[in-house]
């Protein structure tokens, strides 16, 4: 697969920014319980609280988008590190397709669950 590294680098920057925004929302909601609780906002990891979020389309959308952008950013970042090993062109192609395959598997599993829980 021939994709210019400049485009991959641009995509790395854009997905990095998007992951930063979406993950900040996730981190604040899930990990600032005490501070959010002061303002009357309750979010925890109990089944009922989790299902309230899971039934809302906005949260499913946020999680699927976070997963897609996060997977690209992480796997492309890992690929960049491994490419420093001066791989042969054949090894580079195998690495690229391996990253794409891993990404698609995680994306499929990670997309199925939020969509399945939406209707419950």
């Amino acid at each position: 697969m021939v994709i210019k590294n400049t485009y991959l680098q641009l995509a790395q920057i854009i997905t990095g920014a998007l992951v930063g925004i979406l993950l900040t929302i996730h981190m604040v909601v899930m990990h600032l319980d005490a501070i959010l609780g002061f303002f009357g906002i309750v979010n925890d990891t109990s089944w009922s609280s989790m299902m309230i979020r899971a039934r809302q389309g906005i949260w499913a959308g946020i999680y699927i988008a976070l997963l897609a952008f996060g997977l690209f950013h992480a796997l492309n970042g890992l690929r960049n590190i491994l490419m420093e090993l001066n791989l042969s062109p054949r090894a580079e192609r195998i690495l690229t397709w391996f990253m794409i395959a891993i990404g698609l598997i995680f994306l499929a599993v990670g997309t199925y669950v939020p969509l399945a829980l939406l209707g419950k």
């Binding site: 990990h31 600032l32 319980d33 005490a34 501070i35």
Partner: peptide, 10 residues
């Protein structure tokens, strides 16, 4: 900020 939240048991 996150450590504060962690420390107060949130």
């Amino acid at each position: 900020v996150f450590f504060y939240d962690f420390n107060v048991g949130g």
